[in-house]
Design a protein around this nucleic acid. Structure first.
Length: 152
DNA sequence: GCCAACGTTGGC
DNA sequence: GCCAACGTTGGC
């Protein structure tokens, strides 16, 4: 049995929050339109643990934990003309974007805010503390994950 | 609202 | 392939 990998995924709570996930239990993490973020998703395996990060809110920070339960799903929003994630360059015979399915695990009682994260970690340890970091999905090193799990 | 840090696009 | 212009993210 392999140890799980750890990741961090951002979402604006106005668009999709930890409470939405808690209510639904399971969600498709679609709408990713950044190649680097997509490629990280492709490296995920079932059982990987993911820290849920609320971005563009006050305060930004880690609010809970979820788990990867399904992989390599073609992102349906790329073919949906009514979706803000519609991609006219993506063809059904050769889809450009895919996504993973997530399951709710845990919501923290208290947000682990970005200022707190900046005190705990440097940029190499946790990419999300890097100034101007725009990646919506980043890997989390094991020793970092261990500390985060104690804090949330 | 400002701006830093990128990613993307398109002319050449 | 270079690079300037433009767009987006997201903290502050």
């Amino acid at each position: 049995m392999n140890e799980p990998n750890y990741w961090l995924m951002k979402s604006e709570p106005d668009a999709y929050s930890i409470d939405n996930l808690k209510n639904e239990g399971v969600t498709l993490w679609d709408g990713i339109r950044n190649y680097q973020a997509r490629n990280f998703m492709r490296k995920m395996i079932r059982g990987d643990k993911v820290f849920f990060y609320h971005s563009n809110c006050k305060p930004p920070g880690i609010v809970g934990l979820m788990e990867v339960i399904d992989l390599n799903i073609v992102d349906p929003t790329q073919f949906d003309k009514d979706s803000k994630y519609f991609d006219p360059k993506s063809k059904p015979e050769n889809p450009r974007w895919d996504c993973v399915k997530m399951r709710y695990l845990y919501k923290s009682n208290k947000i682990l805010s970005l200022p707190e994260l900046k005190i705990l970690f440097n940029e190499e340890d946790l990419l999300v503390v890097k100034k101007g970091n725009r990646l919506s999905i980043v890997p989390v090193q094991n020793h970092v994950a261990k500390i985060l799990l104690e804090k949330i």
